[in-house]
Amino acid sequence: MKVLIVDEMHESIVHMPEELGLEVDYFPNIAQSDVLEKVADYEGLIIRSKFFIDENFLQNAPKLRFIGRAGAGLDLIDIEACKKRNIEIFAANEGNRIAVAEHLIGMLLCLFNNILKSNTEIKNSLWKREENRGEELFGKTVGIIGYGNNGEATASRLIAFGCRILAYDKYRYGFGNQFVTESTMNEIYRDADILSIHIPLTTETNKMFDQTFFERFEKNIYFCNVARGELVVQKDLVDALKSGKVKGACLDVLENEKLNKLSEDQKISFDYLKNQDNVILTPHIAGWTFESYNRINTVLKDKIARFLNLK
């Protein structure tokens, strides 16, 4: 079986499929047009985020049996088109869950304790103690929407800080335990101090977090997004920050991450976000550690082996 790899990945991505007896061609800098010319010869495809796998692409890949996504989330793959062709899809959500959870904890600690703000002030010769009095995670009620790999890993770390966890997952049941309460959205709207979202981007969830959503919360909340930027109506989040309904935000992802190609509305909302002390921004790196870079490949190798009945 021949496998085509079309994105730059950890070097182990070549050796691991070879260990399964697969023939691997690794073209990390290949253009999409060249992939369309080559892909007809391959039974396996491994991608990260170079381009969208759609109906047109699949018409050029008659032999394709599986697609491996080196990361979490399948929003760049037309899942229904793959199902029609009996093409198996693997994501490596398990590979970066530790990195995502640790990153979110770091963002929250920075936000609650004014770490970035006070660091900048001191470097400008300003010593402000009272103005940077912090807030504790201990005792906070955290609503988690999406209790898959990343949601569960995040919850386990927040538990260690003494947080109460309310978790909602539309497609998963029976996961509650002595530390995590399997909750309804109404319970999260009523009790949450912090909201963290861990759901995939789909037609159902696109722009799910809008003005109406934020207004449902009884308390003013802190909002965290380490999933996908398109889940959130960025302008509505800005309005919620301005009104105080959202007290602060930790955002690893944005509605449009091509900062040199923002629409006028997106530029206005981004300019607001980047200038707020109560907003922590990072460039979609929550799952992007040296360890996860390699671990993702290990997860893909294991899933491919199981698919081929090699394990």
Results as ranks from 00 to 15, higher is better:
L74H: 03
V39W: 10
E43R: 08
N113T: 09
G44H: 14
N60A: 15
G73E: 00
N93Q: 09
R85L: 02
Q59Y: 03
F57H: 12
K117N: 06
I115M: 06
C110E: 01
K123R: 11
E131P: 14
A40W: 04
L116N: 08
W127G: 13
L126V: 15
K83T: 11
G68K: 00
E55T: 13
L76P: 11
G73H: 05
L74N: 06
I47F: 08
R97T: 08
L64M: 00
V100Y: 05
E55F: 08
N96H: 04
N119G: 00
L109G: 13
F112Y: 09
I89N: 02
A101M: 05
I79C: 07
E88F: 14
G44T: 15
H103W: 00
N113R: 11
F90A: 14
E94K: 13
N56R: 06
G73Q: 00
D78F: 02
K128I: 10
K128V: 12
I89S: 06
K123H: 15
R97I: 01
L58F: 09
L104Q: 10
A81T: 02
I53T: 08
I122H: 06
N56I: 00
R65V: 06
K123L: 02
I46N: 02
N56S: 09
E121Q: 07
A40L: 04
A81S: 10
K83M: 12
R69N: 13
I77L: 07
A92M: 00
R65W: 03
C110N: 10
L45Q: 10
N114M: 02
L104D: 09
E80C: 01
E88R: 15
R97P: 05
S118R: 02
W127E: 02
D41Y: 02
C82H: 05
E131M: 15
Y42V: 06
K117I: 07
D75W: 00
N113D: 04
L58C: 08
L64T: 06
R97C: 13
L74M: 08
D54H: 07
C82R: 05
R48G: 03
L104C: 10
L76W: 08
G73V: 07
L116F: 11
L64D: 04
I79F: 10
I115C: 05
Q59C: 08
I53H: 11
E130G: 15
A72I: 10
K84F: 04
L58W: 03
D78K: 06
A99D: 01
I87A: 00
A101Y: 01
A99P: 02
N119Q: 01
T120V: 11
A91R: 12
G95P: 14
R48H: 05
A91W: 04
S118P: 11
K83D: 03
N86L: 04
I89A: 12
S49N: 15
N124H: 07
S118K: 12
Q59R: 12
